[in-house]
């Protein structure tokens, strides 16, 4: 007679449970991924490459990169500051602040987009015309600065924008919406981590004579680097993949205000399935890269953490 550990089930039960898990995995995770790639290549390599080379596609890729390129660094900065503030200091309203950080996760992305339309849209609180008036002196200054040789080019685009400050249905709106929606990622990742680490090491650094920035760069940052990287990675994935909020503020102007996810939708609605899926492979690829980087971060941070105590 053979014995098995008390927490182990009999062979048929085990097989059944494993089969269920594999089935769910295949059906919900692997099949859609495979479908994306299969559809993308259905009409062959040429169509696939042509769909990515098309002008509207390139513009969508560029816009997505810009939106992520602005919002991810901003949110890294916000996230680190917020986490530092709420974990290393005790003050009134602290728990309210912690909840507020989660607000963008709590509201639907569509609402998150609509908020900005209501603020900056034609019938909003700060419509374009009103802002043009308000920015007029700044626009004038930028325009005169743009006249200068050498550095003038730095201001030419700004002058044009200030003269006609478009936020909704334009790049600024897309960047704002993306930043808003992805705001909590870095802070969420860091707050529990910094909470468990406590302030002992920072206090030790202070008694040893370190000033604020030394404490942060030489003690706090090295201790949170893997958590930070992880948060930035997730933030980036969401920034590039965000659909709802961006969809509301973008206006879907082809070749101008379509990000990659919006471009996929437009193509799909126009029955250009292969092109739509070709662009979708880029997003799927981004997801795979994010996943493998995430695994790598976990591996290295686990390695680091093994020597925690």
């Amino acid at each position: 007679m053979s014995y098995r550990p008390v927490t182990t089930e009999s062979a048929p039960v085990r097989l059944f449970l494993i089969a269920c898990a594999v089935l769910v995995l295949a059906l919900f995770l692997l099949l859609p991924l495979a479908a994306v790639f299969a559809e993308a290549f259905r009409k062959g390599w040429e169509v696939f490459l042509a769909s990515l080379h098309e002008e509207a596609a390139l513009s969508a890729i560029k816009l997505t990169l810009i939106a992520a390129g602005v919002s991810v660094p901003l949110n890294t900065l916000f996230g680190v500051s917020a986490a530092w503030l709420v974990t290393k200091f005790r003050f009134k309203g602290r728990s309210l602040l912690v909840s507020l950080i989660d607000l963008p996760f709590a509201v639907s992305p569509v609402i998150a987009g609509l908020v900005w339309v209501m603020l900056f849209g034609a019938k909003g609180w700060f419509p374009q015309s009103a802002m043009a008036d308000a920015f007029a002196p700044a626009a004038h200054l930028a325009a005169s600065l743009a006249e200068y040789q050498g550095f003038g080019w730095l201001f030419s685009d700004l002058a044009v924008w200030l003269a006609d400050p478009k936020i909704i249905f334009a790049l600024p709106g897309i960047v704002i919406a993306t930043t808003f929606v992805t705001f909590p990622f870095v802070a969420r990742e860091l707050i529990p981590l910094m909470e468990t680490q406590g302030s002992d090491q920072e206090e030790a650094a202070v008694t040893l004579g370190a000033r604020g920035w030394h404490v942060f760069f030489r003690v706090t940052l090295p201790n949170i680097k893997w958590g930070l990287l992880y948060g930035v990675l997730l933030c980036n994935a969401r920034a590039m993949g965000e659909f709802g909020a961006v969809s509301v503020v973008s206006g879907h102007i082809r070749g101008e205000t379509n990000t990659l996810p919006l471009h996929v939708e437009v193509l799909y609605n126009e029955y250009q399935f292969s092109a739509a899926f070709a662009c979708a492979t880029l997003l799927a690829f981004l997801a795979l890269v994010t996943l493998s980087l995430k695994t790598a971060v976990e591996y290295f941070s686990g390695h680091d953490a093994s020597g925690k105590h």
Partner: peptide, 9 residues
């Protein structure tokens, strides 16, 4: 410090 607070990195 009680738990030494050595800089672990």
């Amino acid at each position: 410090f009680q738990h030494y607070a050595l800089f672990r990195h």
